[in-house]
Design a protein around this nucleic acid. Structure first.
Lengths: 344, 344
DNA sequence: GCGTAGGTTGGAACCGCTTCCATTTGGAAG
DNA sequence: CTTCCAAATGGAAGCGGTTCCAACCTACGC
């Protein structure tokens, strides 16, 4: 393995000079610089990242932490981060957390100044404890798809998103609208499903429609669980005419349940999802679009800015706009369904 | 930042002893070990990864290189790798390559002994040049979804897979079977699509069915491109009664094209995909299943074994078995279609 | 011709850990 | 109470960079 000393010797200069050339520091004459560059090329020299990290006290690595690589939305965000980091000199260290211990381990791991220079937390807001630790150590962090007081966050207005979906259904004439979301997860403080539900409830209230608590259900975030849940909803004596789900994945589950019951969509059941994952357009799913890739990319750019000294270290909150994408799974309710709602 | 020296001082021992405790080396009395452990806990000490890496000459990092995070199959493999690495002490450094320069940069990057201790190459077989470099430096590499002479590979028999899909269609009575695959990509030497086509041709030949060269098409690996391609296939005067695609993603495109033409599936058109990605079951897509997650996990385990000294450094090739999963997109061809084939 | 400021340059010190070697310690055996 | 061996321990050296300071040029102004 060739070291900086080999290069120095070959170029007939001191190691300090080689280092200066490597880092583009000024104070090196052109002639010397060229000589050194030639030596570097001739030797095929590449500086050792570890030695650099140790000496500079920074790792040139950014840690990305995310839950569940099974979720298309998370993957799409990571894609954005990868893209945003691509042109930079930073490596990307990926870790997923699926259990509290992993989470702990990972966050603590961030607190070694020379393991990662910064971190992007996807969908995992740190607990107050963890936040405190992070702050003490001073690792810059950007949070995506979650809000954490005092940290820059790239997020969306989930409440608004919930409203948008629900209002779309209300405008079509639905009144028996169900909400199918994530069960509260003790392990992680995910809030987006809850917020979307809040938006749903608010929209109903604004429209003067009584929310039927029986139409609000939640379960594991998966197609299968959603199908099961939706099935029970649809098998009720007074089934909903529309279902708004906290994610596209769950919307697919709802569609499965409808299909299993030979229900026409949107004739007998309208479905609205959330996220606009890739497959949504294939399925023709009406959904609330959030620019997933974009959030990842912007998070990376923001973190890079912070690391460069520009950019906010605290509290900036970037809200990414949402769009309702009407496709084929929503339409006016059948009269039969409308009849069900007693006019009082 | 607390260092090993702080710990040593606090525990009243030498730094060597602390290091020994940290690494679980023997030669430390129980009493001393406990004292050191107490000091470590009290100080909240965590060793610096960079210093460790420099001193040990290894980085405790494994580099994962993959193309296109847009492909579900790639993501699923990465998931497997993440899982396989989870219990280990290794960090995972992720890079995607979408252009030849990125590829070059990345592979060269691997050649710094203390950046990564090993690498997993997903779907990207190194070129002979790159292979030579890798070998010279001695970084252990495991290749997934590609075959590289002299490197351990986790792969599947793509030719067989192509056969399986085609034979399934032949058994159902199809004879006008099209193949829709990837266009040869100059940037990467992907071969799986070609191999699957080879299997398709072989199966046809074995069945005594003449392959119609017009029924073999290829294009960019995307749903949209596949839909376009399939459209042209279906708009022919003598359209195929079945289409076998090199991936599920492309099969979805075919289904879109069929839907756009109001063709019944499988009544008027049978479709077989490849991979069995998550969404395949939702769509009811008949496909050739390969355990994507599994390949990633096994690659990680294999690499870990190599790093530990057990495990082959060269040429072992692990073939993962395939399964045909018949679902709803394949069936007997309509007579109309069968009639088209002249019996000579 | 000489002092001097500014541009170059060399290399020691240091980053925090592992490792190896020399030294100390603790006992068991004689 | 020695003697001796193995176990335990301390710490210097070294990993390969960066950085800072001192030393060395060089050319310019007087």
């Amino acid at each position: 393995m060739t070291t900086i000393r080999d290069v120095a010797e070959r170029a007939g200069v001191g190691i300090g000079t080689v280092s200066r050339v490597l880092n583009g520091s000024q104070g090196v004459s052109n002639r010397t610089r060229e000589r050194v560059e030639r030596a570097i090329a001739a030797l095929g020299y590449r500086p050792s990242p570890a030695a650099r990290a140790l000496s500079r006290g920074r790792a040139s690595t950014i840690a990305v932490t995310a839950p569940f690589l099974t979720r298309p939305s998370v993957v799409e965000r990571i894609r954005g981060v990868v893209a945003g980091l691509d042109a930079s000199e930073y490596d990307l260290s990926l870790a997923t957390v699926e259990t509290p211990e992993q989470r702990q381990r990972r966050i603590v791991g961030l607190c070694q100044r020379d393991r990662a220079d910064g971190a992007i937390l996807i969908s995992i807001p740190p607990t107050p404890d963890e936040l405190e630790t992070l702050r003490t150590v001073g690792v810059p962090v950007v949070v995506v798809d979650a809000v954490t007081e005092g940290l820059p966050c790239i997020t969306i207005d989930n409440i608004l998103g919930g409203r948008m979906a629900t209002e779309h259904l209300l405008e079509l004439g639905h009144t028996r609208i169900a909400f199918l979301g994530d069960a509260p997860d003790a392990r992680f403080a995910f809030t987006s499903s809850d917020d979307r539900r809040a938006g749903y409830l608010a929209a109903l209230a604004d429209a003067g429609v009584d929310a039927d608590p029986d139409l609000v259900v939640s379960g594991e975030h998966s197609r299968e669980a959603a199908a099961e849940l939706a099935g029970r909803l649809l098998d009720r004596p007074a089934p909903p005419t529309a279902i708004f789900t906290a994610s596209d994945t769950q919307a697919l589950g709802v569609l499965e349940a409808a299909r299993a019951r030979d229900l026409e969509v949107p004739g007998q059941l309208s479905v609205v999802g959330f996220d606009d994952i890739e497959i949504a357009s294939f399925v023709g799913l009406t959904t609330v679009r959030q620019p997933l890739y974009e959030t990842g990319r912007r998070a990376a750019e923001l973190l890079l800015a912070v690391l460069e000294g520009t950019g906010p270290r605290t509290g900036a909150r970037i809200d990414i706009p949402l769009t309702l994408v009407p496709r084929l799974t929503t339409g006016r309710p059948r009269t039969r369904a409308t009849r069900r709602r007693p006019a009082h």
